[in-house]
């Protein structure tokens, strides 16, 4: 049976170019604030991490010039962007679209592994716990970002919709999941 064409888009070159020169410290701080907001709403996500609740994970979008170090820090997560390779208990690598699709429940982690779009290195059990914890959390990053942006929520949502349409990146949960 033929396998359908690879549905995973590549990250826009402009974003990669921006991240090559952008200062990473303020971005890291913003991402930390954002993830802490997510953590407050989804404490069960950290319970699912079990013994890995204080382990650092390296999330490596292979089409970007940065990696993201995620430290769950027992429920008060810290995020650090770096242009180095980063070290942690486990490394999860793949195109940004695949990683965002996993977060939003649009893609299946095992299927991405079978197709080699996702690569796991280091402690496989830690990576599995992270994958399962995120899959259960039913996250919607765009919705959370809009919630945080106050009066700018509406234009931000419009911008996100436009970016999603142009790039094919999953910045929100697929519609049927949101409606349920």
């Amino acid at each position: 049976m033929p396998v359908p064409e690879n549905p995973i888009p590549r990250c826009p070159a402009a974003l990669a170019a921006t991240l090559r020169i952008a200062p990473l410290a303020p971005l890291s701080l913003s991402l930390t604030v954002f993830t802490r907001q997510l953590a407050k709403k989804n404490p069960e996500m950290f319970q699912r991490l079990g013994p890995y609740g204080r382990s650092v994970f390296v999330l490596d979008p292979t089409d970007l010039p940065v990696v993201l170090l995620l430290d769950p820090n027992g429920g008060a997560p810290k995020v650090t962007l770096t242009r180095r390779s980063g070290t942690g208990v486990a490394r999860v690598s793949g195109p940004l679209a695949a990683l965002l699709g996993l977060v939003h429940g649009a893609f299946d982690g095992d299927a991405l592994f079978f197709s080699r779009d996702l690569v796991i290195e280091g402690d496989t059990a830690a990576a599995l716990a992270l994958r399962n914890a995120i899959d259960d959390a039913e996250l919607d990053l765009a919705h959370e970002a809009a919630t945080l942006s106050g009066p700018l929520a509406r234009p931000l949502k419009q911008l996100i919709t436009l970016v999603e349409r142009r790039t094919g990146l999953y910045l929100t949960r697929p519609e049927d999941a949101v409606l349920w």
Binding site: G105, F107, D108, G109, D110, A111, D135, D136, E138
Partner: peptide, 10 residues
């Protein structure tokens, strides 16, 4: 059971 909700739904 080890698969994601995306797999289950599809």
């Amino acid at each position: 059971r080890q698969r994601s909700k995306s797999y289950v739904a599809q």
